[in-house]
Amino acid sequence: MKILVQDQDFDIAAEISELCGGRTDIGAIVTFTGLVRDFHGDNKVQKMTLEHFPGMAEKQLEAICKTASDRWPLQGGTVIHRYGPLIPGDRIVLVITLSAHREAAFEAAEFIMDWLKTEAPFWKKEQTAKGEHWVDAKTEDNKRKDRWT
């Protein structure tokens, strides 16, 4: 699978074309895109900064995708995770999975997102009218990850 950690935005349609161009064996494409929301609880989010651990971030994403590829019959896929300053509405993360049938593509995409949330070294800092704060990890995210094991 293709893994990218970058500060630039990505083009979902272009990524799909790159994966599928000329192929006729693919039956299902699932895409997930994570966006910056403009609220966190009652607070209005003005900006978000994503920090990452260069090198280890790519390594972890590769390991997660390898696990997904071993578990489901995927025909390819892409994961792109951005870092740096973002504003509400900006794209943060893209997961694309390809398979002959939808079930594998749906499940693998969800698995990759659930694992990425708690296992890939990225950290979000939000800026609201009340100031800046690091986003706390959610126990709910750990539960979502653990349901796959």
Binding site: G34, L50, H52, F53, G55, M56, K59, H81, I92, V93, M113, L116, K117, T118, E119, A120, P121, F122, W123, K124, W134, V135, D136, A137
Partner: peptide, 26 residues
Amino acid sequence: NQTYVDFDHPVKDSDDIAFFPPMTGG
């Protein structure tokens, strides 16, 4: 050395260590 470990993991002078909070990506 870019692998998550527990706090009782051995360390030596040639290791690269990183400390950080629980991850919040995605």
